[in-house]
Design a protein around this nucleic acid. Structure first.
Lengths: 233, 233
DNA sequence: TGTATTTATCTTGTCGACAATAAATATGCA
DNA sequence: TGCATATTTATTGTCGACAAGATAAATACA
């Protein structure tokens, strides 16, 4: 905390909002700020060593992405994860997996695949190390890189939002995530990347769909277990 | 303008940002503020009779939706319409037409259709009156109502963004839009609504796809004509 | 006269303070 | 004691002012 507030005078003009936004966003997605946590403006302004104005602008951005909820004239807090409408989430996630992968097969340039392969290597390492947190974030980064190779900013931005939301959901259960099966994901990624490289849009789409449904099934299993274990719903 | 600034003392606390946001958003989408228009904070604060702080928050929201671009420490202006990557737009638009209509057939409740029908009647009136602007906005409202009946907020919000963007594109050429053919759209809407009511998801999806492709083809024709007429590209 | 450097201006980013609203607390009354 | 009302407190929404960048203008120098 002192680290943050001591940046007071070294900060560049205009960077304040971005710093606050990035840090809060990560803390929300990593569940360091769990859903329902109160967000206090003066407290944040003390913590970051700046006035409430830039804090407020960062909060407006976060609210725009649905990561925090603001009750007018009252408190603002980290938004809840909507377990009741989870199927909407899964529908959207699967469709974005499919369409971004398909477009990547169609529109990617050779140099795009370098970054994708690097992230796939990272993902494989995370699986090998059974590091669930790293798996979640590198998986998201990998698929986002694929989406970017598809060059459709509308799909990419929705997909990015969905993957972030998923980061939050999965982190809820990441303890339970330490089992054997994700090794299959590494192979599936390899197949998907090969299909993209071959510019086989149909195959890429089909593989992405199966991959996404695998993942969704995985999450659903965790959710059911989680509901029985620690959540009421 | 005086009307706006005279609201100074009658305004409710907290409503300032929303007012500015709504007005600016409409002006941008209606091309009253054409792409590239400079956005000056002090000028807006004089116009709306409030300080720069709420203006700024409204601008942050608009920037979050990509309607304005902000150059740090420098000016901010209405964002350009990206004619070069228009195919990304069309891909996303068609897909959202399809998926939201399909989900509406699956998840709608009977009372949802009342609103949909009302909007369809408005659309028919606008076509009858050859009122291009009303056609554009009621068409967007109709399809957004259908999307909401599908109850997937992720798709609905992307679709809403796309329809707004389309409002901006179409208004560029709305003069050229005054011809006979959109009467077909009224019939297509009726068929789509019937398929939704019958909960025939496959038919609804197919009709929505054809409808969307009709519209896209229509826009593309306008664009090509527009490029030859008044834009360079 | 043309270019480099300094000065002025204009717009944004940040600040600290005040006002309004709603919740929490205290008070009055039966 | 129990409930309605008044008061305090906490937190947000808004304001006006100042400072920092960046551009435009003015000046100095070759």
């Amino acid at each position: 905390m002192d680290n943050e507030s001591n940046l007071r005078n070294e900060r560049k003009r205009g960077s304040g909002v971005k710093v606050v936004y990035d840090i809060l966003r990560d803390e929300i997605l990593d569940l360091e700020l769990p859903p329902g946590s109160p967000i206090d403006e003066v407290q944040l302004s003390e913590r970051f060593g700046m006035s409430r104005t830039p804090i407020r602008e960062a909060l407006v951005r976060l609210a725009g992405e649905g990561l925090i909820d603001t009750l007018p004239n009252r408190s603002t807090m980290v938004s809840q994860i909507d377990f009741l409408n989870m199927h909407s989430y899964f529908d959207a996630l699967v469709l974005m997996y499919r369409v971004t992968t398909q477009l990547a097969a169609k529109y990617h340039r050779p140099e795009d695949l370098e970054g994708v392969r690097a992230l796939q290597a990272e993902f494989a390492d995370a699986v090998e190390a059974q590091d669930a947190l790293a798996m979640i974030s590198t998986n998201a980064a990998l698929h986002l890189a694929i989406a970017e190779a598809g060059r459709n900013p509308y799909f990419t931005s929705l997909f990015s939002r969905l993957l972030n939301e998923g980061r939050r959901i999965l982190r809820l259960y990441y303890q339970s995530y330490n089992d054997r099966l994700p090794r299959r994901f590494v192979e599936e990624h390899d197949e998907i990347i090969a299909a993209i490289e071959a510019r086989d849009t149909e195959l890429a789409e089909r593989l992405a769909r199966e991959h996404a449904e695998q993942i969704v099934g995985q999450i659903q299993k965790l959710l059911v277990r989680g509901e029985r274990l620690d959540i009421g719903l």
